[in-house]
């Protein structure tokens, strides 16, 4: 027969084990955002313009190629890097360059970044240059948004409409 104290010890040990599990399975609470914050995320994929524009091959160029490869248009595969800028209330939040991925630099660039921002009304401006031949930012959208606590505003780019989207 075991000592009564040892049964008590066992009960306490099991209870402690359970308490440790109970606590760390949910606590301490993790605050992803501080109270009074919302989040803006830039998130989209975009196939940028080709680094060099296509050009029509001359007769001479065509003759140099094997007969099965004589396509009239010559296009390089590499795409331009994308430059993206995000501004909030006139202040710059981010400016980053995203190179085209892939072995030949011909993939769609993937733009992704997160910004916790205070709640309230903000004027958000996003711009993009996706071509080494273009100057400035050919794509630009500004929107005024009232952000609630915990709200997620995703800024994307619609390749069909060729414009930024806010949702």
């Amino acid at each position: 027969m075991r000592h009564i104290g040892s049964y008590l010890f066992q009960a306490v040990a099991y209870a402690l084990f359970a308490v440790v599990i109970a606590y760390f399975s949910t606590d301490p609470a993790y605050h992803y955002l501080r109270p009074g914050e919302a989040e803006v995320r830039l998130a989209f994929k975009h196939a940028a313009a080709l680094r060099e524009p296509c050009h029509k091959r001359t007769q001479e160029e065509l003759l140099k190629l094997p007969p099965n490869m004589r396509k009239p248009m010559a296009c390089s595969r590499a795409r331009s890097p994308i430059v993206v800028e995000l501004e909030m209330d006139g202040k710059n939040l981010a400016r980053a360059t995203f190179p085209a991925p892939g072995l030949h630099g011909d993939g769609s660039a993937f733009v992704y970044d997160k910004f916790p921002v205070p709640v309230g009304e903000h004027l958000l401006t996003v711009r993009m240059n996706d071509s080494v031949t273009a100057t400035g930012f050919p794509f630009q959208v500004s929107e005024k948004r009232v952000l609630q606590p915990g709200q997620l505003l995703v800024i994307g780019f619609d390749d069909t409409l060729q414009t930024f989207t806010f949702h």
Binding site: F24, S25, T26, D27, A29, Y30, H31, Y32, L33, R34, P35, E37, A38, E39, P149, G150, Q151, L152
Partner: peptide, 10 residues
């Protein structure tokens, strides 16, 4: 929404 407070299983 993004979660503000999460009760993670640590």
């Amino acid at each position: 929404m993004v979660p503000t407070e999460l009760h993670l299983d640590w």
